[in-house]
Design a protein around this nucleic acid. Structure first.
Lengths: 127, 127
DNA sequence: ATTATTGTGTATATTCATTATATACACTTT
DNA sequence: AAAGTGTATATAATGAATATACACAATAAT
């Protein structure tokens, strides 16, 4: 399981895990029925506490993406892919809203923002 | 002093105050030498603690935007307007980066984001 | 088959950092 | 003296992350 956590980002670890697992489900890297790494194993790999992985899996279960059964493990559920994309778009929207708020306060134009976004996006995608 | 704080946003109150005062300086609503409302008065207007306004003014002073002198009050300093804009752009950049991260994970294209951003920006600016 | 072991998820109590607070203090002006 | 400034100390409330012990299931050893 290729999950990368960054302490510098300010994003809570459990959220980073959630986002990346959702992404793998969306992209097909994880299919319905697939087993996730156990909370303990993932915690060991990432050098974090079991409780943090549990927090992530707990949220994913609450939101209907996975299912955990004691003694057996955690598994990907059948997902409505459209709903999934909806949830992703919503998270993106929240970030863009914050950026727009700051931009308007700071008298930064839309085209300036578009330019910035374009550079950032391509940078992240390629470099 | 027209400062609006929103508890729903998740942004700390002191940060909201800082952003809005910076914005007023940048736009010219506040000029060098102008007196800010006293910490106590602003706290009273916003129905928050003096300590929170102090925290905001403290940060603004640390960053060179204002100056506080005991017994007298807090005042806007002479500002390098370019540096100011730099600092605003940096904050916007951070938000856009988070959005871009999520977009790439979620297989959301750049043009989709541009479209979202455009709608959000215009909505906030006009509506 | 029974039992011990190992691997699952779960629950409790705790630590740490951040945000926000009440209250009392020190200084300046009037 | 009084009323207005900014300042400092001690405290509460929340959220992120943790260590440790608990409960259940599958498996290997006997």
């Amino acid at each position: 399981m290729d999950i990368i956590i960054s302490n510098a980002s300010g994003v809570p670890i459990y959220e980073q895990i959630e986002e990346q697992i959702k992404s793998m489900i969306l992209s097909g890297d994880l299919a319905a029925g697939d087993a996730l790494p156990s909370m303990r194993l993932l915690a060991k790999e990432l050098r974090i506490s079991v409780i943090t992985t549990k927090r992530a899996y707990e949220d994913l279960e609450r939101d209907g993406f996975i299912e955990s059964v004691v003694g057996k493990g955690s598994f990907v559920k059948g997902i409505n892919s459209d709903l999934m994309k909806e949830s992703m778009l919503f998270a993106i929207e929240e970030c863009l809203e914050k950026a727009a708020d700051k931009a308007i306060l700071g008298k930064v134009s839309l085209s300036e923002m578009q330019e910035m976004l374009s550079i950032i996006y391509e940078e992240k995608k390629n470099g």
